[in-house]
Nucleic acid binder design. Sequence first.
DNA 1: TTTGAAAGTGTTAAAATGACACAAAGAGCA
DNA 2: TGCTCTTTGTGTCATTTTAACACTTTCAAA
Lengths: 249, 249
Amino acid sequence: MRKEIKKNAALELNPNVSVDCVIFGFDFDKLNVLVINRDGVDGVQWALPGNLIYDDEHLDQAANRVLAELTGLQHIYLEQIGAFGDPNRISKESDRSWLQSIRTQPEARVITVAYFSLVKMEDYQPQASSFAKSAEWIPVNEIRELAFDHFDILQTAKSRLKQMIKIRPIGFNLLPEKFTLSQLHKLYESILDKPLDKRNFRRKIQKLNIVMSLEEKQSGVPHKPSQLFMFDKEHYLLLTQNGFDNFGF
Amino acid sequence: MRKEIKKNAALELNPNVSVDCVIFGFDFDKLNVLVINRDGVDGVQWALPGNLIYDDEHLDQAANRVLAELTGLQHIYLEQIGAFGDPNRISKESDRSWLQSIRTQPEARVITVAYFSLVKMEDYQPQASSFAKSAEWIPVNEIRELAFDHFDILQTAKSRLKQMIKIRPIGFNLLPEKFTLSQLHKLYESILDKPLDKRNFRRKIQKLNIVMSLEEKQSGVPHKPSQLFMFDKEHYLLLTQNGFDNFGF
DNA sequence: TTTGAAAGTGTTAAAATGACACAAAGAGCA
DNA sequence: TGCTCTTTGTGTCATTTTAACACTTTCAAA
């Protein structure tokens, strides 16, 4: 069904505008990014999920569609990072030959609009998905190279994430519904890339009143079990209405 | 000379990608935006300075070129806001007819990449410029409508400006080299759109050590003359090196 | 000389920050 | 049963930062 639509509309692909998605996930230890493995290129060559937009499509819609087509991920809030458009962005030979194989106008100048989002890794196992045999989580810090200008895009996404985590509680998107404060703590340290004092962190997050503690505890862990918490969305919405704008870590 | 280049390259205009610039200025009282008056449209219709990019042109370069062509402003640091690309952005009839008159492919889907910058109003008087007979400063708060989706772009630029003023001392771009603390104070109030306590503001700005007081004072004013200050760029650069990231007003 | 208008200045109470160390709880194993 | 290992969870204090608040000074113009 989806493929049908895609083929019919293929003539309307806009050869000059693409979208790329930076999807972050957290494995309770470090940040990861979802990348796809390009077929037909020798050596491993990762790329962000992305493709051309259709001519009558909203940019945001295009990003969601492309992400779904390439990875199966759906119904995700994607936030725009910005436009990237170096006319020489296709400098590597591998990029060029790959484009030859998939694009009708491989030489066209392309502006790409980048998006990012945060997802719970547990909700999405690429290997298990029939869609995304070639999609894979890779630790952000291990990435040295990506196709096209995707490495630049990733760096921009990282710094945007750093800014945003200080302003909005986006981190909760990266954790399961029930989580421990230690996990949240580790998450903030991963994103901000610096250690945060445990006690001060807990004090601050609790004062914000955006987490509510559950009755439940961790079980089966070989140490003192941790209290479980949930994100308190209502309380957060109240805060935002009163002109709240700083998580200040 | 410039026109020559422009005409020769005209065939290479990319019909799908444009740039638009939001230029803020401060008149010691309120924020203003530089807009251009479209010819041949009945009634007053303002638009942000913008146009299509050339196919081999960096986005940032395109923004600078278009701004210079339409207003004469040059050598300005333009910061990207993001891409705007509603496929229905050309909804108004006046927009449509205007495009008919200036574009070779007036119906093409256009993605626009928006930029913003801050300039000293005293440095730029559109009326006096031979270029920009149609360019004009308009108080931001008086703008109710702009061409295309330019009003949206302006709103986004405003909120981006609000964020950024808390992180970097961009405000100094809006003031003359020598300024008074009251002017700076008013500027921050204009951008943040809320009153700031005079004494607290001055204390805070002085503690940052990014202004240096001059020996000079205002003269000719019918009240106690104000001390003049300069932005201390060196000191600011030192601050940034030490991982400084908050002006926190 | 008087008037009007903006500049400039200090204190205090409340809140936020950063630094820091040890007891409690559970699993696993001998 | 008790020992070990590992992570959780908690409080205080000194320092800094914030917010609220009012009166005197200086100049030009009338």
